Computed example of a mutant assay.
Amino acid sequence: MTDSALAQLLRDKIISDPEVILGDQDLMRALVAASDSAMGANVVDLRGVAMARLETRLDRLEDTHRSVIAAAYENLAGTNQIHRAVLRLLEARSFPELLSVLSGPVAETLRIDSVRLILETKQRGDDPALAALGEMLGIADPGFVADYMRRGHGGPARAVVLRRIPATRLDVGLTAGLSGSTTIYGEAGTGENGGWLRSEALMRLDLGPGRLPGMLAMASEDPDLFRPSQGTDLLGFFAGVFERTMRGFLG
């Protein structure tokens, strides 16, 4: 096929179906650029400038649209995870079983690497009943929960705190009152460079009138699993269910 015949074929195709050109952004940009070159350097095509700006705005809107959709899916997935975890909590029929469910099925559902329940008490001493519950339960002096959750910022302790765990531990002094370990996560939070856990979610527990507060601590080796910029509504809901379940077992 000669060049003239090919040119005529392309012309006929474009005339019969102009969407072939109009729907292709690269072709349209090439045509606009060719038109600008033909007009010379002293001529400005305001329509072309406006189209370029509209294209830029459209690209930004598409990026925003994709980000919103991704965030919506992430929120939906997080909501489903919390709901499944709450249902597993409600299956527990005793306090030891509650701790077992928390460290097993709930930890797997939420994809966390370590979880520990911290309870404050004024009476420090060896309690065989508490010792039988295993390392997941930690006993601390009064005021420990508020001090630990305020680490790194001033003001009153928040109900839920999300943050990274620094490579160099900053909480050794605060955890001096915690029985059984110098860190709340035991061996996972110790060792070279402060252990392998890199982010944590801390939830303050209100165990009812006349009782000192508790804290539910979840940690992950992923430094981005728990970030201060994330919302805390879902974890606040989870903590509310957990503390109400605990009240029922405490009597």
Rank of each mutant, 00 (worst) to 15 (best):
F242Y: 15
R211I: 00
D206R: 07
L197C: 10
A201T: 03
P209N: 06
A188Y: 03
G214H: 11
T232V: 15
A188W: 00
S199W: 05
N193A: 15
R227S: 12
S220N: 03
R227V: 14
Q230P: 01
L197K: 07
E221Q: 11
G240A: 14
R204D: 04
E243K: 13
A201L: 12
R211G: 02
A217I: 00
D224I: 01
L197A: 10
L207A: 07
L234K: 13
G208W: 10
T175K: 07
G208Y: 10
G210V: 06
M203R: 04
T190C: 09
G180S: 11
L225Y: 02
G180E: 13
F226L: 09
A219D: 00
G186W: 06
L205I: 06
M218E: 02
G195L: 03
M218W: 07
G191A: 11
R211W: 00
F242S: 06
L205E: 04
A239P: 08
F226D: 02
T190M: 15
S181V: 05
R204L: 14
P213E: 14
F242R: 02
G180Y: 09
L212N: 09
A188T: 03
M218F: 14
F237K: 02
T190S: 14
E221T: 14
A176I: 11
Q230L: 08
P213R: 08
L178G: 09
G231P: 00
G240C: 03
G191T: 13
W196K: 10
T183A: 09
G195F: 01
P223G: 12
D224Y: 08
F237R: 05
A219R: 03
A188P: 00
R204C: 06
L207N: 08
M203C: 15
D233K: 08
F242N: 10
A219L: 02
G195M: 05
Y185P: 00
A217M: 04
N193Q: 14
P228S: 10
R244K: 14
G191Y: 11
P223E: 13
D206C: 02
A217C: 08
G180F: 10
P228A: 11
Q230G: 03
T190Q: 15
L197P: 05
L202C: 12
T190Y: 04
G240R: 12
G236H: 04
L216R: 04
R204Y: 01
R244Q: 15
G177E: 08
S220W: 03
S220Y: 02
R211A: 07
G195A: 13
G236F: 05
R198M: 06
P213G: 08
L178R: 08
G208D: 04
A176W: 07
T183M: 02
T175G: 09
G208A: 03
L216G: 04
M218K: 00
R211Q: 05
F226H: 02
T190W: 00
L235F: 15
M218N: 01
